[in-house]
């Protein structure tokens, strides 16, 4: 992530505009299309196969999104409906994911838990990256004192293991979905702050920023028009990846009983409840675990793809 990206070539003002910072080598010039056009007899560039991984990830995420927005379409029943005559039933045609200790249908609970699980993941990722950007910006773009404070803050936060930091926050705030979002968000922020800080420093010392400075552009204009857009664009990919990671973190905390109160079908809470019955009803843990892994995998795959495309233009 510290490699200077090619982003400046795509975000710079149009060539010829006053104050243009676009390096000459990448400036489109009249007639360039002609020179780049395939010559007769030249070998054709092979058509790229559609990227299966990102496509599958997108499709998977679309299903999760549907489950989050309209769970009733995929599982019409109530996730809390009891069937006391069918407790701890193994997966079957009647209960695809089996039932829990109160006869509740696990498939229905997983589907109806998607919304809250995704919301926690998205919220935590948003908190994490917002905090990371603020800290990184303070570190990389401000004066010595504020920069020093931000650097030390990042280092102090980084000294705590993510889980410990999250536990500390939940112990202070009390378990709730909001606490979970804040705990995971703050807990994972230091790592992202370092990435963003590196990105900002790279862009800040780039040639086009130096040129803008030499041309007498104001500090705010340079930061707002050149540094932030170029440094933060890769975060789109990071954000997507962090959604999956946040869900895993949130599920870990919920597994420890520090998440959403029962009978919520939030996935971490399902894991936590299911572990009690691990020896007799392993599906109560395995299936929610697989679902969490699938979502994290899909989000990470898509995020990686987005990041790569932004960095390499592929």
């Amino acid at each position: 992530m510290t490699t200077p990206p090619l982003i400046p070539t795509r975000t710079a003002p149009p060539t010829g505009a006053p104050g243009s910072l676009v390096p000459p080598s990448s400036t489109p010039v009249p007639g360039a299309e002609a020179t780049l056009a395939p010559q007769a007899g030249a070998p054709r560039r092979p058509r790229r196969r559609p990227p299966l991984g990102p496509l599958a990830a997108t499709a998977t995420l679309a299903v999760f999104a549907l489950a989050a927005v309209a769970p009733g379409l995929l599982a019409p029943g109530s996730p809390e409906a009891l069937d006391l005559g069918a407790t701890l039933q193994a997966p079957s045609a009647a209960h695809w994911f089996g039932t829990d200790e109160l006869g509740r249908d696990l498939y229905t609970r997983v589907v109806h838990g998607t919304g809250l699980s995704l919301l926690i993941g998205l919220g935590a990722a948003a908190v994490s990256l917002t905090l990371a950007v603020l800290l990184a910006a303070a570190s990389a773009l401000t004066g010595r004192i504020l920069s020093g404070v931000a650097d030390r803050t990042i280092e102090i936060l980084f000294a705590f293991p993510t889980l410990l930091l999250a536990l500390l926050l939940i112990a202070t705030l009390g378990p709730s979905p909001l606490s979970l979002v804040l705990a995971v968000g703050v807990g994972t922020a230091p790592g992202y702050a370092r990435i963003v800080r590196g990105q900002l420093l790279t862009v800040r010392t780039s040639g086009y920023v130096e040129a803008a400075t030499a041309l007498g552009h104001g500090r705010r204009r340079i930061i707002g028009r050149h540094i932030l857009p170029n440094a933060l664009r890769p975060l789109v990919g990071i954000f997507t990846m962090s959604i999956g990671q946040s869900i895993v973190w949130a599920s870990s905390l919920a597994f420890l009983g520090l998440g959403v109160a029962p009978p919520s079908p939030e996935w971490g809470a399902l894991l936590d409840a299911g572990r009690t019955y691990l020896t007799a009803a392993g599906w109560l843990v395995i299936i929610p675990g697989l679902v969490i892994a699938l979502l994290a995998l899909a989000a990470t795959t898509l995020g990686t793809s987005i990041r790569n495309r932004l960095e390499t233009g592929d």
Partner: peptide, 18 residues
């Protein structure tokens, strides 16, 4: 949790706080 479901059937809103 089972009791909570029964109470909610008749119109209680039961918040479990473990």
């Amino acid at each position: 949790q089972g009791l909570q479901q029964y109470a909610e059937e008749v119109g209680f809103e039961v918040e479990l706080i473990p």
